[in-house]
Each structure stands twice: as C-alpha cells, then as structure tokens.
C-alpha cells in the first residue's frame, strides 16, 4: 500500500487563462468540424446545367445527426481532448493541435455514423503502388526519387488554422458591412449554399450579373483593413 499523498489544487489549462485565444481556437475548430462533416462529394458533371437545384451541396444539412452525433457534440469532445493535452503534446502550436484534433474527431464521428463509406460511386478509385517505386522524374534530369521520399503531409495544420480564421473573418465582415443583396450573393456563392441561377432569380439579375456582384464584393472584402490584418497573419 502506498502512503496517502498530499492533496493539491487542480491546475488550470494554459489556454483557459487566455480566453480570447481560446475563443478564436474554438471558432476554428467549429469551422473545421463543419468542413469535414459537410465537405461536398467530389465534383461530377451533371447532364443538365440550367435546372440545378437552388441549393447545392449539403452544407446546411447535418449528415451525421441521424445517428445522434452533431457538430456541437463533436466540438465538445474535441475541446475536452484539447484541454487534456499538456505543453509536451504541442509540436508546433496549440492552434495546429486544435485543428488536428477537430478534424480527427469529425472524421471519427463520420466513421461511427457510417456516413464515411456512403456514396461509393463518388469516391476516387484507389490504386495501390509500392512506396519504393520511383516517383515523378526530376525536372532537372536527375533520377526520380522513390515515392516514399516525396510523400508529404497533405495538410499543414498551422496554415489550415490561418486560412480558416480568414474565412471566419470574411463571414463576420460580410455580415457587418454588406447590404442584404450583396451579403446573400457573396455568402451563398462563396460557401456553396446557392447557385447563381437561384440568386439571379431572387434579385432579378442575370447569372453573369450575380458573378459580377460576387467578384466586386469579394474584392471589397479582401481589401478591407480588417481582412488585411488576418491576411498578414495577425488578428485584430
């Protein structure tokens, strides 16, 4: 039997002492979970084009909620996991770790709900190759390196955090400075919840007119000082 140890107060997680940073991390985790849960299937050419549905993709539908898993639950689980981690678990930054946890939790939820394997016809064909087979030829004329040596991590988590933060700022900016028409067109097209045709019908525009509005608004948002601060890697 071991001797009874002395009680000690529970330590606070480092992120709990910086609520602004934690808020921005949770925002990005939330967006990342949505990106995984609601990622549209690979593009397929449809035979017709003019009669596509007014809404595209499945962005507003919670694909896993049928099995009792929601983005809220996944976020709570991912945050609990993040707050269990210590400084020793951080390779690059808390932000990158948070993105990785959020993505993995969302993928896990998809697998548990069996949605992961739906729509097999939309999945790209897999080709098995040996990792030591030669990769692409060197443009300089040198020998091609084995595939194993040219494989890269497909996602830079720090970069993903920055990009997602920028997208979240775009949404906030659009909601703050755009009128209803411009906001609806920009958000509808940018986040793939609307087609140009449905927006054209709603606002009595042509489809090129909708695209024109989108381009003008996008330029305005990207050049806005608030977005520029995010684009430069900082946060207001």
């Amino acid at each position: 039997m071991s001797n009874p140890p002395t009680p000690r107060p529970a330590a606070r997680h480092p992120l709990e002492t910086d609520s602004a940073r934690l808020e921005s991390i949770v925002d990005v985790m939330w967006a990342q979970i949505h990106k995984v849960l609601h990622r549209p299937p690979p593009r397929r050419r449809r035979s017709g084009g003019s009669d596509v549905a007014g809404r595209i993709g499945e962005a507003s539908t919670d694909r896993v909620s049928g099995n009792g898993v929601s983005a809220d639950d996944v976020l709570a689980e991912a945050l609990a996991d993040l707050l269990q981690k210590s400084e020793a678990d951080v390779d690059t930054s808390w932000e990158a770790l948070a993105v990785g946890i959020a993505r993995n939790k969302a993928k896990g939820a998809l697998r548990e709900s069996e949605a992961w394997l739906h729509e097999t016809e939309n999945r790209p064909r897999l080709t098995v190759v040996s990792a030591d087979s030669p990769g692409r030829p060197d443009p300089g004329g040198g020998a091609a390196e084995p595939l194993l040596q040219v494989l890269e991590d497909p996602v830079d988590l720090d970069d993903e955090f920055t990009k997602t933060s920028q997208q979240l700022e775009l949404i906030r900016l659009a909601q703050d400075i755009l009128d209803e028409r411009d906001r609806t067109i920009f958000l509808g097209l940018h986040y793939e919840t609307r087609t140009r045709q449905s927006l054209a019908t709603q606002f009595d525009l042509t489809t090129p007119g909708v695209r024109h509005v989108y381009r003008i608004v996008a330029k305005r948002l990207y050049e806005h000082p608030r977005f520029q601060r995010y684009a430069e890697g900082g946060a207001p």
């Binding site: 962005a59 507003s60 976020l75 775009l170 940018h190 986040y191």
Partner: peptide
C-alpha cells in the same frame, strides 16, 4: 484559393458558447 478554403463551412451555423 478562398473558395476552396471555404468549402464545407456554413456561414449560418452558430457555435455553442464557450
């Protein structure tokens, strides 16, 4: 690049409070 980064995000979704 911005359109690709936005894929799957839902501008209408509101997350639970911290």
């Amino acid at each position: 690049s911005s359109l690709k980064a936005a894929q799957g995000m839902d501008p209408e979704a509101s997350r639970p409070s911290l």
